[in-house]
Simulated scan of single mutants.
Amino acid sequence: MGLPKTHTLDALSVGRLDHESGDAIVRYPGQVLVVRATGRGSYARTTTDRFGFPRLRRARAKQHFGYVTGDLVRADVPTGKWAGAWTGRISVRARGQHSMATPEGRINVSHWNLKLLQRGDGYGYSTRSEPSESTSRKIG
């Protein structure tokens, strides 16, 4: 087919195509949605030591200040070391000082500076661009 080797284009190429009768790939994706399982937090009631014995009890509440671990949020931090606008997935803390994972790394943000973009459903979503059709013809 002359297409680059990617999972998306492999799935597009599955099946029988009869080139002599005019069968061809009509639409070529420019971007694909990448879905990654991230989980919904831990259901454990205790934290154990290295031998498996309970070390401490965990908080019963999984939601703190209206946020749950895995929510996609936007943080507008006005001052300090992490000043600026950040977007990422949070891990909630009972104190309200949540930990946020961004592409640049982890930062700590207060619940006052957060705005919910998407509720955590156990998956992380992103997009990835596919090689252009013109480059694929040159490669193949």
Rank of each mutant, 00 (worst) to 15 (best):
M1Y: 12
P4W: 06
P4K: 02
K5Q: 04
H7M: 03
L9F: 15
D10I: 15
D10R: 08
A11I: 13
A11C: 09
L12R: 02
L12E: 03
V14G: 03
L17C: 12
L17D: 02
D18M: 08
H19S: 10
H19P: 14
E20R: 07
E20K: 10
E20T: 15
S21L: 11
S21Q: 05
S21G: 07
D23F: 14
D23M: 11
I25C: 07
V26E: 00
V26S: 03
V26F: 13
P29F: 02
Q31N: 10
Q31F: 15
V32I: 14
V32A: 08
V32K: 02
L33M: 08
L33V: 15
V34Q: 01
V35E: 00
V35K: 01
R36M: 06
A37G: 10
A37E: 01
A37V: 14
T38D: 01
T38Y: 03
G39A: 08
G39S: 08
R40S: 12
R40Q: 04
R40F: 13
R45H: 11
R45F: 00
T46D: 00
T46I: 10
T47E: 00
T48W: 01
T48H: 02
D49T: 15
R50T: 11
F51K: 03
G52D: 02
R55G: 09
R55A: 11
L56Q: 05
R57H: 12
R58V: 00
A61G: 13
A61H: 09
K62Y: 09
Q63I: 15
H64F: 15
D71Y: 14
D71C: 12
D71N: 11
L72N: 03
V73H: 07
R74C: 11
D76N: 08
V77A: 01
P78W: 09
P78T: 12
T79P: 06
G80S: 06
G80H: 05
K81N: 04
K81G: 12
W82N: 13
W82M: 07
A83Q: 07
G84D: 04
G84L: 07
A85D: 00
A85N: 03
W86A: 04
G88D: 02
R89G: 08
I90T: 10
I90D: 00
I90V: 15
S91Y: 13
S91L: 06
S91H: 12
S91M: 06
V92R: 00
R93S: 13
R95A: 12
H98S: 09
H98I: 14
S99D: 05
M100T: 09
A101H: 10
A101M: 07
A101D: 04
T102H: 05
T102K: 00
T102Q: 00
G105N: 03
R106E: 01
R106H: 10
I107Y: 07
I107R: 01
V109P: 11
S110G: 13
H111D: 04
H111E: 01
L114V: 13
K115Y: 06
K115L: 03
L116H: 07
L116E: 01
Q118E: 05
R119K: 06
R119H: 11
D121W: 12
G124I: 03
Y125S: 06
S126Y: 07
S126P: 13
S126L: 05
S129H: 09
E130H: 10
E130Q: 12
E130Y: 01
S132D: 03
S132W: 06
S132H: 05
E133D: 04
E133Y: 14
E133N: 05
S134G: 08
R137W: 11
K138C: 11
K138T: 14
K138R: 08
